[in-house]
Design a protein around this nucleic acid. Structure first.
Lengths: 169, 169
DNA sequence: CAGCATACGGAGCTAACATTCCGTTTGTCA
DNA sequence: TGACAAACGGAATGTTAGCTCCGTATGCTG
């Protein structure tokens, strides 16, 4: 299963079932005994990542400074996704993502992020109209620059740019 | 040929040759008499769009205010791409785009944008380290939010956010 | 060890698509 | 009108990749 992860990370959804099986050192049949379809396998990979993603947010919420906490969520989430082009795609399209079994992870994440945003706004450190959808857009944009410039750290510069834009004043 | 455009706009590179031919009211054979491969057809569509894109930039360069000129290029370029998911993808990946026949259009665009950026920096209106690559990243990010939230105008809000981030001070 | 169950492997099936090829239609010139 | 050329259409082909299925191996129980 972790082999699927490696290949989806490298090739995204283009990764082929044959290759995934070979990489895992098993036959195709065995892969299909664990996951009914390719999409199910992909979904599971994404679900695991989203879980990690929510954990990152949870830890960042503990940061005392409200602005720093919000920025840490974004920066660390982006870092967690570096090098995993499969999940990068999933993250960009997370709005249209309706895959079953992921709602739970998405909800958890939404709640944490919403809390952190509220706190930053209450502290007057972030534009008062900033909301979760904006957060999602920023992550989408950042991930896109990462996805289309693989191996480059330029996305950091871009995220900093955007973070400056969301600060109050 | 303009039929290819309509379908690539709607479906992106997923558009099927059969459909494109049917939409154009011709047989598949005829399509292949004009374009040797699907990629050639796609490239031509992208080339035409890039041309328009450069023209948009050219017109925006005439704006007197340096900052306004730069922002106009971005806003208008994004507007020009709304609803054309095929070109949106091409634009996001324009860094890796090595398709023959497009270099000319890319060079033209790069030159204009570089001039406009220099002017805005010289006027002290934009961060002095802002460069063409940053421009490309911003367009990539903006296009991504547009692509993954089709039909929504939220990308404007996002672009504004980013534009705020690139201003000096 | 025999008998049964569970899990495996991977050849082959099938569907989707780009692309080719040839019989037919349309247009032109004398 | 007849002969030739140019352009057309779309059935047939080749290929790719997800998925199925069945013969085999492994492990467990009495």
């Amino acid at each position: 299963m972790s082999s699927g992860r490696v290949l989806f990370a490298r090739d995204g959804p283009e990764a082929q079932m044959d290759e995934i099986a070979a990489h895992a050192g098993v036959g195709i049949g065995t892969v299909y005994r664990h996951f009914p379809t390719k999409e199910a396998l992909l979904t599971e990979m994404v679900r695991l990542r989203f879980q990690e993603f929510a954990e990152v947010a949870e830890r960042a919420e503990e940061i005392a400074d409200p602005l720093e906490a919000l920025e840490a969520i974004m920066r660390r989430s982006a870092e967690a996704v570096e090098g995993d082009s499969g999940f990068q795609l999933a993250m960009m399209g997370s709005n249209e993502l309706e895959w079953e079994g992921i709602e739970e992870q998405k909800t958890a994440l939404t709640e944490i992020v919403t809390r952190v945003i509220s706190r930053a706004i209450a502290a007057g450190m972030v534009r008062s109209d900033f909301n979760f959808d904006d957060f999602a857009m920023v992550m989408c944009g950042t991930t896109a620059t990462m996805y289309f410039k693989p191996g480059s750290a330029d996305w950091r510069r871009y995220l900093d740019l955007t973070l400056k834009g969301i600060r109050a004043g």
